[in-house]
Computed example of a mutant assay.
Amino acid sequence: MSFQGRITRAGGTKVKRALGVQAALEWAFRVEKAQLELPLPQDVTEEGFGFGLEYVLLQRAALGCKVDGGQHKIGGYTHEDAEVIAATVAGIPDSLGGKRMAIRVAELARAGLTPDWMPGAVPRCVPAEIKRNRHGDRALSIVVGTERVLVKGKWRSVEVRACPVTFSPDAQQIVAARRAYCDWWHALGWVREGLLAGSMLREIDLTGMLPKEAPWNL
């Protein structure tokens, strides 16, 4: 979904724009370049003493910053509604993933993406290792034993080889990807409810639209 320009006014009257929560998040973080201001840990003062490495990394990831500085919106203005949305995301409770989920929600919105729930994925049995050369791909095999066989009247020892296999993707990977999607979905639901309860959005009419809860069941 693409967003062009800023929410506009017509004839001096504010025109509310109807958006679902995912679209509103993408507008706030992708178009308006809203930044996530995460709350300080309880043992951290505002002067900056006691910052742990994990907290610093979380802050940099949230802001999309490199070590030598951040990214700033041209003109320096972020729409008030976008700031409200970002502040709500920053308040995602620990029961729904807390700061890490807030960062995840913001990153996905900034990129205009939905979590990869591995659509159509099923475990498939494949060779554990593949050898590639100019003739193509060949599954690698290993020696698992020896047998004596009669060849042209003579007994010979021959290797018994087998091809180790694995499942890719395995069932655990698929389950983990879909669990992560569900966690994101519940976080979006919380953000939506928080924005509606706060009633602070001036130019966005937040609709009840949410992404599909379990798209793999359709």
Rank of each mutant, 00 (worst) to 15 (best):
S168H: 04
V160F: 01
M118W: 02
L113S: 09
C163W: 06
V149H: 10
P93G: 07
C182P: 03
V151Y: 11
G136F: 11
V21Q: 03
V67A: 03
A106H: 04
L218C: 01
Y181P: 11
T166I: 12
A23T: 09
V165G: 00
A102P: 03
V67P: 00
L40F: 11
Q42A: 15
R30E: 08
L218P: 06
D43R: 07
G20R: 04
E47V: 08
L195F: 04
D94L: 15
G153K: 05
E213V: 10
A18Q: 08
D43P: 00
G75D: 07
P93N: 06
L195R: 00
P123G: 12
E159F: 09
D137C: 13
Q173R: 09
V191R: 02
A139G: 04
R110E: 03
E147H: 07
Y181Q: 05
L19E: 12
E47K: 12
E203N: 07
L218H: 02
M1V: 13
P39W: 04
R104E: 12
A180Q: 08
K66M: 11
V105H: 02
L201V: 07
D116W: 05
R192S: 15
A162Y: 09
K73I: 14
G76D: 14
R138D: 08
C125F: 02
K154W: 08
M101T: 15
E213M: 14
L108A: 09
R138G: 08
I174W: 02
V144W: 04
K152M: 09
T207Q: 05
H72V: 15
A111N: 13
F51Q: 12
K99Y: 13
Q35E: 15
P39R: 01
G97P: 05
F51Y: 13
F29G: 07
D205V: 00
A171R: 11
E54W: 05
V175P: 00
G189V: 01
L38Q: 03
L58P: 04
H72E: 15
D43A: 10
G112E: 00
K66V: 13
E46A: 14
L201I: 06
R104W: 08
G120V: 13
A109W: 05
L201E: 00
F49M: 03
G194K: 11
V149T: 14
L140S: 10
E193P: 03
G76W: 05
R132G: 01
G69F: 06
L150F: 07
Q172E: 14
P123V: 11
V89C: 03
E193A: 14
M118V: 00
A106N: 10
A82M: 02
G64H: 04
R110K: 11
F3E: 03
L113G: 02
W216M: 02
L188E: 07
G194A: 14
D116Y: 10
V149N: 10
V165Y: 07
K154H: 08
S168N: 10
S168T: 09
M101A: 15
G97C: 03
E37Y: 10
I174H: 02
A197P: 02
W155H: 04
A180G: 09
A128W: 10
V67F: 06
Y77C: 02
D170R: 01
I204G: 00
P41Y: 06
Q22L: 14
